[in-house]
Every structure is written in structure tokens, then in C-alpha cells.
Write a protein that binds this DNA or RNA. Structure first.
Lengths: 240, 240
DNA sequence: GACTGACAAATTGTATACAATCTACCTATC
DNA sequence: GATAGGTAGATTGTATACAATTTGTCAGTC
């Protein structure tokens, strides 16, 4: 039997729901960097007042996934190249620390690996169905679930902010399309983790992150930037 | 000549001001873990409506320095022993990464070390004046300034959340009084950093954190806990 | 035609009103 | 006296009204 939730308990989960909708849209790259997040529009979409939307946006802003421009409202963040380097540097630090901790705890959390295998399987399916958005999101969720299994809530929280920011960086700076290898990398990483092999797991995670970064064009010289992306984004904005 | 700020620009800095007042009060241990943060009272103190206070509290809640209890309001966080271990673990990871990055950049940010020396000097003065609260806060600010000099904004942000949380942990679990050595540790760390000696700096930071943790009573068995603290806190609450 | 200024519309920022909920106290009952 | 129930007051949660600001448009001027 389901507990009859009071209207205010319901609203708390609704808050979370709105947040996750926007979060997922960013992970799936349906929401492009720079997109304006108009409070009233979002309020109408989700059937709540601006108060609630504003709280959600403030959470996203705190996680640096959105930014508030004074008197102009909230926008999906557009990390510049310097931001991108810092974010990826921080993410590497976190991810290595996380796999280290998961490997250490491997024997005591054996039952909890199931969700990771499920995520990999779903990733395979989405990839086979050429559902790129879902595949990207699931890849992010794999990393977030790993963070949860680290048993360290602050680290989990930090990664929760870094994963969508990485998604924005990929949207802005990815030069080459991603090969299908990412899923296999997740698989091999998980195998090493189950064995509690911290060194191997850290090595695999490091390579995994290398592969993500290799596909980015993060040099300062504007000449090397992908012009199609630059103008493509303008076109996207105008069309929306 | 000072720009005449509009009322809304002023309000933005006011926001920051309220946040810092509460943040500092926690660093200086004037605000004890578990203290209720009543919205209307804070609004009267700072001369703003609950809307503004609520935004500040929500920021503190994101940083895990405050917690919202549904329909009961916000309280200063009370990390339990498990939380404390995770926070200190995360903090060590961050601090070591930060000194590594500061040491790497040492030659290119030479002019920026001045503030750190100033902070150490102020720490000495507060310590000499037996102004314990200020001394603790300045110690925290030293670590935050270090984080700023790392040149990595995400890492700086994470540490900004971990420093006040550490303050709460010390308030709750410190068994032995801190010796005066901490300031000298900051001095020696800074010397190593200026020379760009990353290994030495990391070693010193590791020891510095060891010393903080050594003074805590973080074992699970309740019998070993400081009973005076447990009941002292109740008395404090009732008296407030 | 390009530029400036002013007005109108749209949007955000803040305060406040109202509803939902919790807390404390009091009373009735055993 | 202890306990359950119920009412009043205090407090939070949400929506909304209003003020401040920005943005877009359109005359008017050069």
C-alpha cells in the first residue's frame, strides 16, 4: 500500500523531478550551452510557480551547470577553454579517487555492482538503437553510480556537479565523434573493480578519461577551433 | 569616485554579505552544530525579507553546512562520525591536490603569496590575543586562499564547502585542545610552496591534516565519546 | 541610411499574503 | 499522575503582486 503523501511531501519529490529533467536534458545534450532558461516558461512546462523554478535554477547555478546573469536570468553554462581544463583536471582527480575507494570496498559491496552491469547493458542497447542522447546520459549515470559506491558523499556530490559540466564541454569542444569503445572501457573497468584491483582500475579510468579528452579541441588558438560548431550553435539558437 | 550602485547590484553584494556572516560565524564556532536558523529572525537581523534569507540558507544547504528539515526549517549541520570520516577523507584529497597545483604554479604567481603571509601574521596576533574564534577562522581562510591560488575553480569551490564542515566536526568531536603548532605548520608549508617543492609541501600538508585529525575522537563506540560535549551542547541549546 | 532617445513589452528580483504543517500547551479522561 | 486529544500560536512552503531592470521598437534627427 502506498502512503498517502501530503501535498508538501509530494512537492519535495517534484522539486527533485524538475531538477532531474533539466539535468538529464543537459546530459543528453538536448539543452545546449548558452540556452536561456526562462523562469515563467519552465514554470508553465512543469506546472509550478516561478518560486520553485527559481530554486531549481539556483541549485543548477550552484553546481555551475547554469549561470545567472543579473537581471537577465539563467542560462545553461558555457565553460570556456580555461574552465574546461580545470573541470577535466578536477574530474580526473575525483574519478581516480573514486575508483580507488570502490576497489577498496569491493568485497563488502558485492551486491551493489548489479546496477552498474544494468547500466552497461542499457548503454549497449541505446548504442545499438543509435539513440545517442540516451547512450551519453547512461554513460554519465555509470560514473555517478560509481561515485555512489565510493561510500564518500562529498566526493559523490562533487562528481555530480562535474559530470554535467563535462557534458557541456563535450557539446562545445568535441572535434571527433566518439568511437564505440567507451562502453567496453566501462566493462573492463568494472571487472577490475570487482576483483578489488585498485591499480588496474585507476589505470583504466585514466585511459578512459584520456580518450574523452583526446576527442576535444581545447587549444587556445581560435584557428584550430571547429568553425562549424561555432556557427552551428548560433543557428541552433536562432531556430529554437 | 565610486559608481552609484543600483539597488539590485547592492542587493547582490548584500546577499554575499549575509552568506559570509553566517559562514564566518560557523568558522569561528559562534554558531554551534544543530543551531536552528529561523528565517524571520535572520531576516530581521539583516533587514531583508525571508526570500533573501531562504536563498542564503539554500546555498548553505547545498554546501552541506546547513540542513533543511521538511516543514521545520534550517539547522546548522551536525555531521555524524561517518560523515566526519568522509569529509576528512575528501578534504585530504583536495588539500593535497591543491598544494600540488600551487607548487606547480609557484613561479608564475609569486606576487600572490602576500595574502597568505598576511593571514599567517593575523593568525599570530589573534593567537597572542587569545582570540580563539578569529584564529580558527583565519586558519580556515588560509586554506581557502591556498585553494584560490591552485587556479582550479572547481577544486576551490569544493574546499569552500569542506572547510566549514571541518569546523563543525571539530566543534563536535575535538577531544584535546589544539596546540599552537598549527600556525608554524602554515608557515613551513608556505615556505615549501614558494620554492615550488611539491613533494615537501604535500608531506607538510598531510602532517598538518594528521594533527587536526589526531585531536578528534572519532571512534564509533559511544563510550569513548566526550560526554561533557554531548550534554554541554544540550545545555547550550536550552540556554540560547 | 545610421544613430540617438524614448516609450512599451517582457523579464527578473523582492516582498508579502496565504496555506500547510508543526509545536506547545491545555484539558479531559483513565 | 500519566496519557490522549484538541486547539492556538508559530513557522515553514508556495504563489502571487509589485518594483526594478533590461530589451526591442519606432520616431526623430543628422
Amino acid at each position: 500500500m502506498v502512503e498517502p503523501k501530503s501535498s508538501r511531501q509530494r512537492s519535495k519529490t517534484q522539486d527533485q523531478h524538475i531538477y532531474e529533467e533539466i539535468f538529464d536534458a543537459i546530459l543528453e545534450q538536448r539543452l545546449w550551452p548558452g540556452t536561456r532558461l526562462k523562469e515563467e516558461s519552465l514554470g508553465e512546462i512543469f506546472g509550478v510557480s516561478r518560486t520553485i523554478i527559481r530554486r531549481t535554477l539556483s541549485r543548477l547555478a550552484h553546481e555551475r551547470v547554469a549561470v545567472f546573469e543579473p537581471n537577465r536570468g539563467a542560462f545553461v553554462a558555457e565553460p570556456d577553454i580555461s574552465d574546461a581544463r580545470q573541470i577535466l583536471d578536477a574530474r580526473r582527480l575525483m574519478e581516480l579517487a573514486i575508483v580507488e575507494r570502490v576497489a577498496e570496498r569491493a568485497s563488502s559491496i558485492k551486491g551493489e555492482f548489479k546496477k552498474l552491469y544494468d547500466l552497461i547493458e542499457q548503454e549497449h542497447k541505446s548504442s545499438a538503437a543509435a539513440d545517442k542522447g540516451t547512450a551519453i546520459r547512461l554513460s554519465g549515470e555509470f560514473h555517478l553510480e560509481l561515485a555512489r559506491l565510493s561510500g564518500n558523499k562529498p566526493l559523490e556530490g562533487f562528481l555530480h556537479s562535474l559530470v554535467p559540466q563535462t557534458s557541456l564541454i563535450i557539446a562545445l569542444y568535441q572535434a571527433k565523434e566518439g568511437s564505440r569503445c567507451a562502453i567496453d572501457e566501462h566493462s573492463r573497468l568494472l571487472d577490475a573493480l570487482k576483483l578489488g584491483d585498485a591499480e588496474e582500475a585507476k589505470c583504466l579510468m585514466g585511459e578512459h578519461l584520456d580518450h574523452i579528452e583526446e576527442r576535444l579541441a581545447l587549444d587556445e588558438s581560435p584557428g584550430n577551433r571547429n568553425l562549424a560548431k561555432v556557427f552551428g550553435r548560433r543557428a541552433e539558437k536562432a531556430g529554437a
